[in-house]
Simulated scan of single mutants.
Amino acid sequence: MELTFGGEIWYWRGPAPWHFVTVPDDESAAIESVAALVTYGWGMIPVAVRIGGSEWQSSLWPKDGGYIVPIKAWVRSAERLEVGDAIEVRLTLGV
């Protein structure tokens, strides 16, 4: 399954800080419909992520009934992204 959506980068300042983009509700519902087939446990969903010219493998994290995409530091640097930037994300599930 491939999904494309827009979102805004946000920062979580927990014990292990990360930058994320939230998967919108409609796309989260589509993911949930196949989650049992692709999860490797704890609700984590393996994905290939593409933002701009950067592509990498990661996992969606479940949060508040939906999913969030972690954005790695090298991607933010390569794409010149900051907190609050609106981005387009392409996901390929189950990789």
Rank of each mutant, 00 (worst) to 15 (best):
F5K: 05
F5T: 02
G6T: 10
G6S: 14
E8L: 04
E8V: 12
Y11M: 08
W12Y: 15
W12Q: 09
W12I: 00
A16M: 13
W18V: 04
H19W: 14
H19L: 05
H19E: 06
V21Q: 07
V21Y: 03
T22P: 02
P24H: 04
P24A: 04
D25E: 15
D25C: 00
D25R: 15
S28E: 07
S28M: 07
S28T: 07
A29M: 12
S33T: 08
V34D: 11
Y40I: 08
G41M: 07
G41C: 07
W42D: 15
G43P: 12
G43E: 11
M44V: 04
I45Y: 00
V47L: 03
V49C: 10
V49R: 02
V49L: 03
R50H: 02
I51L: 02
I51S: 00
G52L: 02
G53P: 02
W56G: 01
Q57L: 10
Q57E: 14
S58N: 09
S59C: 05
W61C: 03
P62D: 04
D64H: 13
D64G: 14
G65R: 10
Y67F: 12
I68S: 08
V69L: 12
P70G: 01
W74T: 09
V75N: 06
R76E: 01
S77Y: 07
E79C: 08
R80Y: 06
V83S: 09
G84T: 05
A86N: 14
I87Q: 09
E88V: 12
V89R: 09
T92E: 14
T92D: 11
G94W: 04
